[in-house]
Amino acid sequence: MFTYAIRRILIAIPMILIMALFTFLLMQKTTGNFYDLLRMDPHISAEYIHKYEQLYKLDQPLLVQYFEWVKNLFHLEFGYSFYYNIPVVNVIGGRLWNTFILSFSSLIVTWGLAIPFGIWAALRRNKAVDRVIQFCSYLALSTPSFFLAMLLLYFASRTGLFPLGGMHSAHYEELSWFGRRWDLLKHLAIPVIALSVASVGSLQRIMRGNMLEILHQQYVTTARAKGLPESKVIYRHALRNAINPLITLLGYEFSALLSGAALVEIIVSWPGLGTLMLTAVRSKDIYLVMASFMMGGILFIIGNLFADILLARFDPRIRYE
């Protein structure tokens, strides 16, 4: 099990390097003009420009530049944001964390709803409850998260139930510890709902499908033949197997959430990686764009890694191959 984890981590490292390479090549398309443009901007001091030109050895051949770039990455030197006027690394950290909170909360809500609904629908197959859930799922998974976010904002504006975007209220600093958590939750509500609905729709259907398939498996009959209570048959024997394919999906799930989160973040003004990236793209702040991009990619790779290891933990067939 430990060796399996190490193996997966080792595979992740070249992935990250390739991501870095890709990002680097992408940057090459624009950095040339980028520095010229910067020189023309009166707000930016010549020393900064010079410092970064030195740092990235822009006068050297591409390969050397690439190695400098990667080396700098490991020192957490991501370049300079000319829009915010501070090194990128100072901007990214907090944003990364905020996006993570959002994506992770959505993941929990998604799983928390999809699995029970999926099981429920499978156990009451083709009855009224199942049909209703199925239709709602179609509707849910077809709803664009950004559209839902807009609708929710509109709804919030009319009812005042939720804050209209952002992450903290104006008076956040004055709140108690408890008050702050509650404030955060209120602000999380709209983006998390917007993000989760579509995921719940699709995950629920998959869960239902898995459950239905597993309930026909021989080992479920065996469990009954052993005289186990029905609850154990379903929630221990069947469920454990039905969930495994979902854990495989966890990796892609997380990436989809990350990706979707970016757009939703922008709409509700949640200060995360997505909003950061958008500002960066709009202001052509290249280093910020690339760093955000890399961060997104790394979050994804780590998420997948986690899912792989989780799967091995839950499915012995993978562990012992």
Partner: peptide, 11 residues
């Protein structure tokens, strides 16, 4: 049962 590979729970 006939086929123990399928009759046992794999996990």
């Amino acid at each position: 049962f006939q086929e123990p590979l399928y009759a046992f729970n794999p996990v």
